[in-house]
Design a protein around this nucleic acid. Structure first.
Lengths: 109, 109
DNA sequence: CGGTCGGTTCGAAAATGCTCGAACGTTTGG
DNA sequence: CCAAACGTTCGAGCATTTTCGAACCGACCG
């Protein structure tokens, strides 16, 4: 059908910088974005967050990222496929993702 | 005196990405950072925010930016000199500031 | 079918953040 | 010295977020 997913996603030009920054300002959400930088992942396989985090909490986390336009969340069988919206973010805010996904403190020692 | 400012500022390697992103995720605070990109400014001359914003609110705004390490706030006579910590931020998160300070929707049409 | 797996939605409670007036320094000028 | 200009801090109320269990739902398997 016309709808690639049952969840609402902003389209590219609706993505707003403050919301993106807010979404990424949480360590857990940032970790998810970083993990997705290597390619799409099913939510069940996304171990970026605490494994004993309640599902509802994890789902809410993804909601914030999705509504900000950072990730895409589409049904995939009985799972959810998560994708970093790199093309859209790069087009809208060039350089932002590269800067943010770069490892934070890895080289500091 | 030994102290260049009476307010606490994190030093460069204390600056954390989530806090920076959070500080910049508010439109008012983002506007302040953008205005300071052109050079230091006295707080009284900083018209990036609503002019009839109460002083305490404006002060709190600056506090968030300062504690995140985004700006420096040092006494200057009976005023306050605000400075964007571009060197520190560029060193710590290369490309971030450039991406964030770029005009958001200017070219979108 | 009936059950399980993966995940969303809904409330409600706890935590965090924002706003703003009041009170308080400091610096400067008369 | 006294007062005004500029800002910070404090506290309280309000708003937004976060957290998590419970209920739900579609996809899949037996």
């Amino acid at each position: 059908m016309s709808n690639p997913s049952d969840l609402a996603h902003p389209d590219r030009d609706q993505i707003a910088l403050p919301e993106v920054l807010f979404a990424l300002s949480d360590p857990d959400r940032l970790a998810v974005a970083r993990q997705l930088a290597d390619g799409p992942l099913d939510m069940a396989s996304c171990h970026a967050t605490d494994p004993n985090l309640p599902k509802s909490t994890k789902s809410h986390l993804m909601k914030v990222l999705r509504e900000a336009g950072v990730i895409r969340n589409e049904p995939n069988g009985r799972r959810r496929r998560l994708t970093l919206r790199r093309d859209d973010l790069d087009a809208r805010f060039p350089g932002l993702l590269d800067a943010v996904l770069r490892d934070p403190d890895r080289l500091a020692e």
